[in-house]
Design a binder for these strands. Structure first.
Lengths: 196, 196
DNA sequence: CGATAATGTTATCATTTGTTAATGTTTTGG
DNA sequence: CCAAAACATTAACAAATGATAACATTATCG
C-alpha cells in the first residue's frame, strides 16, 4: 500500500499479484457513489449485498434490536472496507444497516468482484484469506473485551483503536458501539475524570 | 459432507474439489493426537499455532484476564474445528488457550496444510473464503448478542446454538462463555424458571 | 468405598448499567 | 440568524450483575 492509497484496487493490490487483465475487469465494474450524511447504503434484510470501500467520509454498520435500540457493529473511516458480505453465506440477508455519518464517497464492490479476484490464478489467495483472518481476530478481541472489560475500559481501548474517531462521531454512537447507553457512558466518563 | 464425516479431509472436501495428490499430501501431514481431560493443546502466547479437528470429545478455547478470570471463547464438540489461526496474522502469538473438557481425539492441522489447500488450483478457493465468512458471521452475531441481550437471553440462545452441550459441560463454563459469573447464571436460571 | 476436589446454590451487599425524565448545550438547515 | 433537532449531562430510582462467603451436592480418583 502506498501512503496515497485511495481505491479498492490499491487496497487489494497490497501484497497481491493481480494481473492487469483482472485489474481492468475489476475497475470496469467498480461504481463510485456519493452518499450524504444519514443516507443508508444498506438495510437489514437486504439480499443484494455489497461491500464499500470508503474513499472519504465515515460510515457505520449497525443493527437495531427488538426494543428499537441501535447497536453499532463497526465504524469505517477513509481507506476502510465495510460490508456484511458474511451474510452471503447465511440465509436471511444482511443483519446490518450501513449508513453514512458524514458525507461519504465510496466504491461499491459487488460480490462478483470478489469472484474475479479469486478466479485470478496469478493472485495469491492466501492474502485474501489472511485479511479474513485479521478481521476474525478483530472480532475475537472485541468479544473477549465485551465479556471481560467494563464499559469505561472498553471506551479507553476504543480511543486507542480508533484514533481520531472520538472527535468525529457523537458520543452516543460510541456508547452504541460499546454496548451501553449514552447516559451510562457520560456517567462513566465523568466519574473516571473525577478520579484523576 | 456425508453423515459419517469424521476427519478433516472429509470436512474440507465438502463442496471442494480437491485433487487426489493434494489430498494425499494433506493426509500424510495430519497428525492424530489424543488428549486427556484438562490437558492443554495450546497456551496463550504460543507461536506455533495449529488448528484442531475434533474427532471425538470436546474442547474449549478461552482467555484468562488480568484478574485471573476465565472467559470461554468457543466450544468445539465432534466435527468442529477449533483454532486461533487468526493470530497467525497478528503479532504476539495466540490470544487463547485450548483445553480438553473431555478426553478428546483430534487431528492436528498445521498452517502448511492450509497452504496446501490454497495452492491446489483445482480447488475452489471461494469455499475456503466462504467458511471464513461464516465464521465471521458467527462472531458478528455473538458481538451483537453481547451488546443487546441480557445474560439469560444469551443463555437461551446458547442452548439452541449448541444443542447437547449444556448436558456436557459444567454450568460454570457456560457462564464463562456468556461472560457472566457462575453465581449470576445460577440466579438467572432459577429466577427464570420460577416465573414459569 | 471414601477422601478430596469440583461444582451448584443461596444469600447479602456493592457496583455497574439501564430507565426515565428534565434540562442545558450544540448543531443543523432553512 | 433563528427555530428545530440532535446531543450531552445530570439525577433518582430500578434492574442486572459482580464479589464474597457459606454451604450442599456431585464427581473424581486413588
Amino acid at each position: 500500500m502506498t501512503s496515497t492509497e485511495n481505491s479498492f484496487i490499491d487496497f487489494i493490490s497490497n501484497g497481491h499479484d493481480i494481473t492487469n487483465d483482472v485489474c481492468k475487469a475489476i475497475e470496469s465494474k467498480i461504481l463510485i457513489k456519493k452518499v450524504k450524511k444519514k443516507e443508508l447504503l444498506q438495510r437489514k434484510g437486504d439480499t443484494n449485498l455489497k461491500a464499500y470501500y470508503v474513499k472519504s467520509g465515515l460510515l457505520k454498520s449497525y443493527t437495531i434490536d427488538e426494543n428499537g435500540k441501535e447497536h453499532i457493529f463497526m465504524f469505517a473511516p477513509e481507506k476502510w472496507i465495510i460490508s456484511d458480505i458474511n451474510s452471503l453465506a447465511i440465509p436471511g440477508g444482511s443483519d446490518l444497516f450501513v449508513q453514512a455519518i458524514e458525507n461519504t464517497e465510496v466504491e461499491v464492490i459487488s460480490p462478483e468482484i470478489f469472484q474475479l479476484i479469486s478466479d485470478d490464478k496469478n493472485n495469491s489467495h492466501l492474502k485474501e484469506v489472511n485479511k479474513l483472518h485479521r478481521r476474525n481476530a478483530v472480532l475475537q478481541k472485541r468479544i473477549i473485551s465485551l465479556m471481560s472489560q467494563t464499559a469505561i475500559e472498553r471506551y479507553n481501548d476504543f480511543i486507542k483503536t480508533y484514533p481520531g474517531i472520538v472527535q468525529r462521531v457523537p458520543q452516543k454512537m460510541i456508547a452504541s458501539y460499546l454496548g451501553i447507553t449514552p447516559q451510562a457512558l457520560s456517567k462513566s466518563i465523568s466519574q473516571a475524570s473525577a478520579k484523576r
